[in-house]
Amino acid sequence: MNRLTGFSRAGMAGAAILVVAALVALIAPLLISADALDVTRVTAAPWQTPGAQHWLGTDHTGRSVALLVVQGAGTSLFVGLTAAVLSVGIGTLVGIVSGHFGGLVAGALLRVTDFFLVLPALVLAIALSTVLPRGLGTIVLAIGLTSWPSTARMVRAQTLTIEARPFVERARALGGGHGHVIGRHVLPSVVPLVLVNTTLAVASSIVAESTLAFLGLGDPTRISWGAMLHQAQLHGAVPQRAWWFLLPPGLAIVVVVLAFTLVGRALEAVVTPKR
Protein backbone atom coordinates (compact mmCIF):
# COMPACT_ATOMS: atom_id res chain seq x y z
CA MET A 1 0.00 0.00 0.00
CA ASN A 2 1.21 3.43 -0.86
CA ARG A 3 1.75 5.34 2.34
CA LEU A 4 1.07 8.64 0.63
CA THR A 5 -2.54 7.71 -0.01
CA GLY A 6 -3.19 8.21 3.70
CA PHE A 7 -1.86 11.74 3.48
CA SER A 8 -4.75 14.18 3.66
CA ARG A 9 -5.35 16.94 1.14
CA ALA A 10 -4.77 19.51 3.88
CA GLY A 11 -1.41 17.89 4.55
CA MET A 12 -0.46 18.09 0.86
CA ALA A 13 -1.43 21.77 0.77
CA GLY A 14 0.69 22.38 3.86
CA ALA A 15 3.65 20.61 2.28
CA ALA A 16 3.30 22.71 -0.90
CA ILE A 17 3.29 25.93 1.14
CA LEU A 18 6.40 24.82 2.99
CA VAL A 19 8.26 24.09 -0.24
CA VAL A 20 7.46 27.60 -1.49
CA ALA A 21 8.45 29.17 1.84
CA ALA A 22 11.74 27.26 1.87
CA LEU A 23 12.54 28.35 -1.69
CA VAL A 24 11.78 31.97 -0.83
CA ALA A 25 13.98 31.80 2.25
CA LEU A 26 16.89 30.29 0.30
CA ILE A 27 16.70 32.47 -2.79
CA ALA A 28 15.73 35.83 -1.28
CA PRO A 29 19.16 36.78 0.10
CA LEU A 30 20.67 36.27 -3.37
CA LEU A 31 18.23 38.60 -5.08
CA ILE A 32 17.85 41.41 -2.57
CA SER A 33 20.66 43.94 -2.45
CA ALA A 34 21.80 44.90 1.02
CA ASP A 35 21.13 48.53 0.18
CA ALA A 36 17.39 48.00 -0.09
CA LEU A 37 17.28 46.89 3.53
CA ASP A 38 19.76 49.36 4.96
CA VAL A 39 17.95 52.08 6.90
CA THR A 40 20.64 54.61 6.10
CA ARG A 41 20.59 54.05 2.35
CA VAL A 42 16.93 53.70 1.44
CA THR A 43 15.50 56.59 -0.53
CA ALA A 44 11.75 55.97 -0.37
CA ALA A 45 9.53 57.95 2.01
CA PRO A 46 8.39 56.22 5.26
CA TRP A 47 4.82 54.92 5.74
CA GLN A 48 3.99 54.79 2.01
CA THR A 49 0.75 52.97 1.21
CA PRO A 50 1.01 50.05 -1.21
CA GLY A 51 1.52 51.17 -4.77
CA ALA A 52 3.17 50.35 -8.05
CA GLN A 53 6.69 50.85 -6.79
CA HIS A 54 6.38 49.30 -3.34
CA TRP A 55 3.52 46.95 -3.69
CA LEU A 56 3.28 46.34 0.03
CA GLY A 57 4.16 49.91 0.98
CA THR A 58 7.08 50.99 3.17
CA ASP A 59 7.83 50.86 6.89
CA HIS A 60 8.70 53.68 9.27
CA THR A 61 12.17 54.03 7.72
CA GLY A 62 11.10 53.80 4.10
CA ARG A 63 12.16 50.17 3.48
CA SER A 64 9.91 48.04 1.33
CA VAL A 65 7.64 45.82 3.46
CA ALA A 66 7.51 43.20 0.70
CA LEU A 67 11.31 42.84 0.73
CA LEU A 68 11.36 42.73 4.53
CA VAL A 69 8.82 39.90 4.64
CA VAL A 70 10.75 37.90 2.06
CA GLN A 71 14.02 38.51 3.92
CA GLY A 72 12.42 37.59 7.26
CA ALA A 73 11.41 34.11 6.05
CA GLY A 74 14.95 32.82 6.45
CA THR A 75 15.31 33.84 10.09
CA SER A 76 11.91 32.52 11.13
CA LEU A 77 12.37 29.17 9.38
CA PHE A 78 15.97 28.76 10.61
CA VAL A 79 15.08 29.44 14.23
CA GLY A 80 11.95 27.31 14.00
CA LEU A 81 13.81 24.31 12.56
CA THR A 82 16.92 24.39 14.76
CA ALA A 83 14.99 25.04 17.95
CA ALA A 84 12.62 22.20 17.11
CA VAL A 85 15.46 19.78 16.41
CA LEU A 86 17.19 20.77 19.66
CA SER A 87 14.00 20.45 21.67
CA VAL A 88 12.90 17.13 20.16
CA GLY A 89 16.43 15.78 20.43
CA ILE A 90 16.60 16.49 24.16
CA GLY A 91 13.05 15.23 24.61
CA THR A 92 13.71 11.95 22.79
CA LEU A 93 16.88 11.24 24.74
CA VAL A 94 15.28 12.01 28.09
CA GLY A 95 12.14 10.08 27.14
CA ILE A 96 13.92 6.90 26.09
CA VAL A 97 16.33 6.93 29.03
CA SER A 98 13.61 7.51 31.60
CA GLY A 99 11.32 4.97 29.92
CA HIS A 100 13.82 2.17 29.41
CA PHE A 101 15.94 2.31 32.52
CA GLY A 102 14.24 2.09 35.87
CA GLY A 103 15.67 3.24 39.13
CA LEU A 104 16.81 6.52 40.58
CA VAL A 105 18.02 8.19 37.38
CA ALA A 106 14.72 7.56 35.61
CA GLY A 107 12.77 8.76 38.63
CA ALA A 108 14.76 11.97 38.82
CA LEU A 109 14.47 12.55 35.06
CA LEU A 110 10.72 12.02 35.22
CA ARG A 111 10.43 14.47 38.12
CA VAL A 112 12.41 17.11 36.22
CA THR A 113 10.36 16.52 33.06
CA ASP A 114 7.09 16.92 34.91
CA PHE A 115 8.39 20.04 36.59
CA PHE A 116 9.36 21.72 33.34
CA LEU A 117 6.23 20.45 31.62
CA VAL A 118 3.96 22.60 33.77
CA LEU A 119 6.17 25.69 33.89
CA PRO A 120 5.21 28.33 31.34
CA ALA A 121 7.83 27.75 28.63
CA LEU A 122 7.61 31.29 27.29
CA VAL A 123 8.34 32.81 30.69
CA LEU A 124 11.48 30.69 30.97
CA ALA A 125 12.46 31.51 27.40
CA ILE A 126 12.03 35.22 28.16
CA ALA A 127 14.18 34.92 31.28
CA LEU A 128 16.87 33.00 29.38
CA SER A 129 16.99 35.42 26.48
CA THR A 130 17.15 38.35 28.88
CA VAL A 131 20.21 37.07 30.71
CA LEU A 132 22.08 35.70 27.68
CA PRO A 133 23.64 38.00 25.08
CA ARG A 134 21.29 38.90 22.24
CA GLY A 135 21.60 36.76 19.14
CA LEU A 136 20.17 33.99 17.02
CA GLY A 137 21.87 31.33 19.14
CA THR A 138 20.25 32.65 22.30
CA ILE A 139 16.80 32.51 20.76
CA VAL A 140 17.33 28.94 19.58
CA LEU A 141 18.65 27.90 22.99
CA ALA A 142 15.88 29.70 24.85
CA ILE A 143 13.17 27.98 22.82
CA GLY A 144 14.86 24.58 22.53
CA LEU A 145 15.78 24.31 26.21
CA THR A 146 12.29 25.15 27.42
CA SER A 147 10.03 23.19 25.07
CA TRP A 148 11.37 19.62 25.26
CA PRO A 149 9.27 18.19 28.11
CA SER A 150 6.18 17.37 26.06
CA THR A 151 8.29 15.34 23.62
CA ALA A 152 10.02 13.61 26.53
CA ARG A 153 6.66 12.73 28.03
CA MET A 154 5.37 11.32 24.77
CA VAL A 155 8.52 9.37 23.90
CA ARG A 156 8.61 7.95 27.42
CA ALA A 157 5.01 6.82 27.15
CA GLN A 158 5.72 5.16 23.80
CA THR A 159 8.87 3.52 25.19
CA LEU A 160 6.91 2.11 28.12
CA THR A 161 4.17 0.86 25.78
CA ILE A 162 6.67 -0.90 23.56
CA GLU A 163 8.61 -2.36 26.48
CA ALA A 164 5.42 -3.82 27.91
CA ARG A 165 4.76 -5.70 24.68
CA PRO A 166 5.46 -9.43 24.68
CA PHE A 167 7.89 -9.18 21.77
CA VAL A 168 10.27 -7.21 23.98
CA GLU A 169 10.00 -9.88 26.64
CA ARG A 170 10.73 -12.42 23.92
CA ALA A 171 13.80 -10.41 22.88
CA ARG A 172 15.03 -10.37 26.48
CA ALA A 173 14.37 -14.08 26.82
CA LEU A 174 16.44 -14.62 23.67
CA GLY A 175 19.29 -12.93 25.54
CA GLY A 176 19.03 -9.40 24.12
CA GLY A 177 20.49 -6.62 26.29
CA HIS A 178 19.71 -2.90 26.64
CA GLY A 179 21.34 -1.99 23.33
CA HIS A 180 19.45 -4.67 21.44
CA VAL A 181 16.05 -3.79 22.93
CA ILE A 182 16.49 -0.04 22.40
CA GLY A 183 18.08 -0.30 18.97
CA ARG A 184 15.92 -3.00 17.42
CA HIS A 185 12.55 -2.46 19.12
CA VAL A 186 12.18 0.88 20.91
CA LEU A 187 13.88 3.31 18.54
CA PRO A 188 12.21 2.15 15.32
CA SER A 189 8.80 2.52 16.91
CA VAL A 190 9.61 5.94 18.38
CA VAL A 191 11.01 7.47 15.19
CA PRO A 192 7.68 8.12 13.39
CA LEU A 193 6.27 9.83 16.48
CA VAL A 194 9.43 11.89 16.83
CA LEU A 195 9.08 12.97 13.22
CA VAL A 196 5.51 14.11 13.80
CA ASN A 197 6.56 15.88 16.96
CA THR A 198 9.39 17.68 15.21
CA THR A 199 7.02 19.03 12.59
CA LEU A 200 4.61 20.28 15.22
CA ALA A 201 7.50 21.65 17.29
CA VAL A 202 8.68 23.74 14.33
CA ALA A 203 5.25 25.35 14.25
CA SER A 204 5.29 26.28 17.92
CA SER A 205 8.95 27.35 17.75
CA ILE A 206 8.16 29.82 15.00
CA VAL A 207 5.36 31.31 17.09
CA ALA A 208 7.70 31.43 20.10
CA GLU A 209 10.42 33.14 18.03
CA SER A 210 7.98 35.78 16.83
CA THR A 211 6.80 36.38 20.38
CA LEU A 212 10.33 36.80 21.73
CA ALA A 213 11.20 39.12 18.84
CA PHE A 214 8.02 41.09 19.41
CA LEU A 215 9.01 41.61 23.03
CA GLY A 216 12.31 43.02 21.78
CA LEU A 217 14.40 39.98 22.68
CA GLY A 218 15.32 39.01 19.14
CA ASP A 219 18.61 39.38 17.31
CA PRO A 220 18.74 43.11 16.62
CA THR A 221 20.92 42.59 13.53
CA ARG A 222 18.48 40.33 11.72
CA ILE A 223 15.11 40.83 10.12
CA SER A 224 12.41 38.42 11.21
CA TRP A 225 8.63 38.54 11.05
CA GLY A 226 8.36 38.95 14.79
CA ALA A 227 10.95 41.75 14.75
CA MET A 228 8.93 43.57 12.06
CA LEU A 229 5.87 43.44 14.28
CA HIS A 230 8.00 44.70 17.15
CA GLN A 231 8.92 47.71 15.03
CA ALA A 232 5.29 48.16 13.99
CA GLN A 233 4.21 48.26 17.62
CA LEU A 234 7.08 50.49 18.66
CA HIS A 235 6.51 53.05 15.92
CA GLY A 236 2.74 53.18 16.14
CA ALA A 237 1.58 51.30 13.07
CA VAL A 238 -1.78 50.64 14.75
CA PRO A 239 -2.77 54.24 15.51
CA GLN A 240 -1.56 55.20 12.02
CA ARG A 241 -3.65 52.39 10.54
CA ALA A 242 -0.65 51.20 8.56
CA TRP A 243 -2.31 47.89 7.77
CA TRP A 244 0.27 47.12 5.07
CA PHE A 245 2.99 47.03 7.70
CA LEU A 246 0.95 44.92 10.15
CA LEU A 247 -0.76 42.34 7.94
CA PRO A 248 2.04 40.81 5.81
CA PRO A 249 4.44 39.62 8.53
CA GLY A 250 1.58 38.34 10.70
CA LEU A 251 -0.04 36.51 7.80
CA ALA A 252 3.31 35.03 6.87
CA ILE A 253 3.63 33.59 10.38
CA VAL A 254 0.09 32.23 10.36
CA VAL A 255 0.45 30.60 6.95
CA VAL A 256 3.80 28.94 7.65
CA VAL A 257 2.82 27.80 11.16
CA LEU A 258 -0.49 26.46 9.87
CA ALA A 259 1.34 24.65 7.07
CA PHE A 260 3.67 22.92 9.56
CA THR A 261 0.70 22.02 11.74
CA LEU A 262 -1.23 20.54 8.82
CA VAL A 263 1.75 18.50 7.67
CA GLY A 264 2.32 17.33 11.25
CA ARG A 265 -1.28 16.24 11.67
CA ALA A 266 -1.29 14.49 8.31
CA LEU A 267 1.91 12.63 9.27
CA GLU A 268 0.35 11.74 12.60
CA ALA A 269 -2.67 10.26 10.87
CA VAL A 270 -0.34 8.15 8.70
CA VAL A 271 1.89 6.84 11.47
CA THR A 272 -0.72 6.11 14.13
CA PRO A 273 -2.53 2.90 13.23
CA LYS A 274 -6.27 3.16 12.68
CA ARG A 275 -8.58 1.13 14.87
Binding site: V207, S210, F214, G226, L246, G250, I253, V257
Partner: peptide, 9 residues
Protein backbone atom coordinates in the same frame (compact mmCIF):
# COMPACT_ATOMS: atom_id res chain seq x y z
CA UNK B 1 -1.13 29.47 14.44
CA UNK B 2 -1.91 33.13 15.13
CA UNK B 3 0.53 34.96 17.41
CA UNK B 4 -1.50 36.44 20.28
CA UNK B 5 0.02 39.89 20.05
CA UNK B 6 -0.65 40.16 16.32
CA UNK B 7 -4.30 39.27 16.81
CA UNK B 8 -4.51 41.98 19.47
CA UNK B 9 -2.96 44.57 17.20
Amino acid sequence: AVPTFWLGM
